[in-house]
């Protein structure tokens, strides 16, 4: 009911009369087709190379498609690298840091958008400013902290770093941007009921802000999933190492196993695509309700 109220002014784009859109649609199809081709070509390369037999990989690389396909690569790859375990690590770390970023980010976003707290603008800008540092230099000293807290080679170390450095600032900003547009009378109904601020956040604001929370969550998940700098230094064994670092094993000191590398990369890409397909409906309907204008 509440959500409907927020999304009230909004059947949005579909409210544009169709006949005025024909030019826009032709343009859109052209832009999207070009981008689709440019995006599917790399995927095609990845698939083609992942199917090249190891025996004459060097000669096969000169062809766009392998002269004979070797599907066994996808099995052999698993025997060289514990892909399933590394995948699980990735899911735990990315999922954990997403949850941490959301749990801590939502109250902060509330405070920054709905309360006139001390130094509101400074906080907002300060959080964003932490994003301006390059992770490859941050890691030198981040390692000190994690070593002292005994968090190297643990999931927690990476979950905290990924959440704190990669995702929290964006999570804060995007959810705060959404909450700022939630009508005030909703808040007042709770104030009348005498609910605490915490109740207000989790019972009233979170359900309404779900769309922006989903966007922020996807962002947090992907950022952590793609992290390299932190995981490389902190995940000191395969027991905690996420998949993108593990894949790097196929870049040996002297040789590159292109076929396994590409096969494992496709495996590392799939979970994110699946996640996106699952939340896409939410994302879209959410966006319709007006996340960050």
């Amino acid at each position: 009911m509440i959500a409907a109220k927020v999304g009230d002014g909004a059947s949005r784009i579909s409210r544009i009369p169709r006949h005025t859109l024909s030019g826009d649609r032709v343009f859109s199809y052209i832009v999207l087709s070009v981008f689709t081709v440019l995006t599917l070509f790399p995927i095609f390369i990845m698939i083609a190379v992942s199917l090249m037999p190891s025996r004459h990989l060097s000669s096969d690389l000169y062809h766009l498609w392998p002269t004979n396909i070797d599907l066994r690569n996808y099995l052999l790859m698993w025997s060289q690298l514990p892909v399933a375990h590394l995948l699980l690590n990735s899911v735990i770390i990315a999922g954990g840091s997403t949850i941490l970023a959301l749990l801590t980010g939502i109250p902060a976003a509330f405070a920054l958008s709905r309360m006139n707290i001390v130094g509101r603008k400074i906080w907002l800008f300060g959080f964003l400013a932490t994003q301006l540092f390059s992770p490859s230099i941050i890691i030198v000293s981040a390692y000190h902290v994690m070593a002292i807290a005994h968090l190297t080679d643990t999931y927690w170390g990476l979950i905290i770093l990924d959440a704190g450095f990669y995702s929290l600032p964006f999570v804060l900003w995007s959810i705060a941007g959404f909450m700022r547009h939630i009508p005030r009378e909703l808040e007042e109904t709770v104030d009348v009921d005498g609910g605490s601020t915490w109740t207000k956040i989790w019972r009233v604001f979170v359900p309404i802000a779900i769309p922006s929370i989903v966007v922020a969550g996807v962002y947090a998940f992907i950022q952590s999933w793609n992290d390299f700098a932190f995981a490389l230094t902190l995940a000191t064994s395969q027991s905690t190492m996420p998949l993108p670092i593990g894949i790097y094993s196929f870049m040996g000191a002297y040789q590159i196993q292109w076929n396994y590398l590409m096969g494992a990369s496709l495996v590392a890409t799939l979970p994110v695509l699946i996640l996106f397909l699952i939340v896409q409906k939410r994302l879209v309907s959410g966006m319709l309700a007006g996340s960050i204008k």
Binding site: L100, A101, T104, F127, T130, F133, I138, I139, V140, S141, A142, H144, V145, A149, I160, L161, A163, G164, F165, L168, P169
Partner: peptide, 11 residues
């Protein structure tokens, strides 16, 4: 707290 742990000291 989370941001400080991650980037406070490094900065």
């Amino acid at each position: 707290l989370v941001i400080t742990m991650a980037v406070g000291y490094p900065i």
